[in-house]
């Protein structure tokens, strides 16, 4: 009897760490790994074309240049400079994101030459009338969500994905939960399903056309479908550049007026 128990005991001892990893811990571990995989790029610039389509198919276009500065131990600093529609040309938005703490945000209005600090509560509101909320486009810090690992499955193009449920931990989110698909090899986001506060499946976001830029992967296109309204927004990205030498001086509210 004793001789048979020993291997079973050994098996139990060795399998304990694996069994102890709850779906929550595994979800968090993968979110951290994904965050590490996409860090160290220092700064990034890119051009974005945003195409808004309503249910009848009529189209509206926005063009935005973006600059992002990676910040250690805090959320990133971001700058958005609007080129289209023409009436908002020259408008610039500066955001310092802080994970669970409210973001700091300034808006530059070129007609008045006025820099306005704006309240940060509006996370769930639409960005420029699109299907993207401010919180969908903000810096995705690990600490902003609670995680739960659901499963691993095929997710198109021969890729396998981790499927993770994440629940916003920050205040004023428009979502009760999100389900995200991350590819198992490079931790690239493939798809996110957004569920509104009542639990209904509100929107789905899909990434397409990944290209590698040195160490980092970026998608050419992000497509957000709103299932309740039938409206959709496509983001087309181009001119990705990394490590361009931007510093905190470029992300100063006083610099907003001279970016154009």
């Amino acid at each position: 009897m004793k001789r048979r128990l020993v291997p079973i005991l050994i098996l139990l001892v060795f399998s304990t760490p694996l069994m102890a990893e709850t779906p929550e811990k595994k979800g968090l571990r993968i979110a951290k790994a994904a965050d590490r995989r996409d860090s160290g790029w220092k700064d990034q610039t890119a051009d974005m074309i945003m195409i808004l389509r309503n249910r009848r198919g009529s189209k509206s276009v926005r063009k935005i240049r973006t600059k992002t500065l990676e910040v250690r131990n805090d959320g990133d600093k971001g700058l958005s400079l609007f080129d289209e529609p023409a009436d908002v040309k020259g408008t610039a938005m500066l955001t310092f994101s802080h994970g669970l703490q409210p973001d700091d945000q300034w808006l530059y209005l070129p007609a008045l030459k006025r820099v306005k600090r704006i309240a940060s509560r509006n996370k769930s509101g639409p960005f420029m009338g699109s299907e993207f909320a401010f919180e969908d486009l903000g810096s995705q810090e690990v600490g902003k969500y609670r995680y739960k690992y659901l499963r691993e499955e095929a997710c198109g193009g021969g890729w396998r994905c981790h499927v993770i449920e994440r629940t916003p931990a920050y205040k004023y989110s428009g979502y009760s939960r999100q389900i995200s698909w991350l590819d198992t090899r490079e931790y690239r986001p493939v798809k996110v399903e957004y569920y509104d506060r009542k639990g209904a499946h509100l929107k789905t976001l899909k990434w397409k056309g990944y290209k590698s830029y040195g160490n980092y992967w970026r998608a050419d296109e992000m497509f957000m479908q709103n299932h309740l309204t039938g409206k959709a927004t496509t983001l087309k990205w181009s001119n990705y550049r990394f490590g361009t030498g931007l510093g905190s001086g470029d992300f100063n509210k006083n610099a907003l007026a001279r970016l154009r």
Binding site: A119, S120, R121, Y172
Partner: peptide
């Protein structure tokens, strides 16, 4: 002077 809160200015 401006104090910016989550919903208050």
């Amino acid at each position: 002077f401006q104090y910016t809160g989550e919903a208050w200015l």
